[in-house]
Design a protein around this nucleic acid. Structure first.
Lengths: 128, 128
DNA sequence: CATATATATAACCTAATAGTAATATAACAA
DNA sequence: TTGTTATATTACTATTAGGTTATATATATG
């Protein structure tokens, strides 16, 4: 899905995630959003344009101000995508999987980190 | 969090998301992963390196093959981050105040000490 | 040994990102 | 009007991303 490209790309920047976190408290002007950061105002405006293009914020108007507010549909969509993988990190699922394997083999010991292995291939763990 | 940068950036590419979807069915070699795509094998290897650097996959060895498998901890972490915003797209309302602290800590781009500019000073005039 | 297969690496190109400073625009205020 | 504030836009630069082709490396096999 093309939208996920833009959404995840927008979320990949800490400044933009901080902006979203700020907007979670309520709408804010560009100056208010820029205040915590060391970068210039045009840089913030650029980040806001990225967030806007991703549909993560929308823009209002109040005199000279253009208050932004959070729009959460892209967040919900990203969350839905991630939910497809929930079974892989869900601890309960993993414990259940181990329990089933133990029942099959008659092994009373609970093994940790038993995820579907295949053939004789060894898998090295992730680095960090 | 720096990890979220790399995770979201890795997820922002449709080829990489497709690779993860394939690996959700079980581990696969580079050739198997490359097969559905029109791009060259080195391009796939590059994508795999991105995914590996993000901790989203790990690498095993089986003769000449280097089967990749899904690693879901970054997905879980990304999901946790998104969960902070769940209330915005959920019907049910939850108090948000406790979350805000977590959302805004650990960001390297945030100023340590906010210095207020004098009201008579031109915004553009003085720079740090 | 020579060769085929699977994957990685190097060198290169192009386009996009993320920042800057300077300037433009638009609304308010005196 | 003049000036100030808030924001956007332009022009520029450096870095990174994503692709290519060509080549290197590692392993299996005849």
């Amino acid at each position: 899905m093309r939208d996920l490209d833009v959404t995840f790309a927008a979320l990949a920047d800490p400044t933009r995630r901080a902006i979203l976190a700020r907007l979670a408290k309520g709408e804010a002007s560009v100056m208010e959003l820029a205040q915590p950061f060391v970068m210039s105002q045009p840089a913030i405006s650029k980040h806001l344009k990225v967030l806007e293009r991703a549909g993560l914020i929308s823009c209002g108007r109040d005199a000279q101000r253009r208050p932004r507010r959070l729009e959460t549909r892209p967040l919900r969509d990203a969350n839905r995508w991630l939910e497809n993988y929930r079974q892989f990190w869900d601890a309960q699922f993993r414990r259940l999987d181990d329990l089933l394997q133990d029942l099959q083999t008659g092994n009373p010991m609970i093994k940790k980190n038993k995820i579907k292995k295949k053939k004789s291939a060894r898998l090295k763990g992730d680095q960090e």
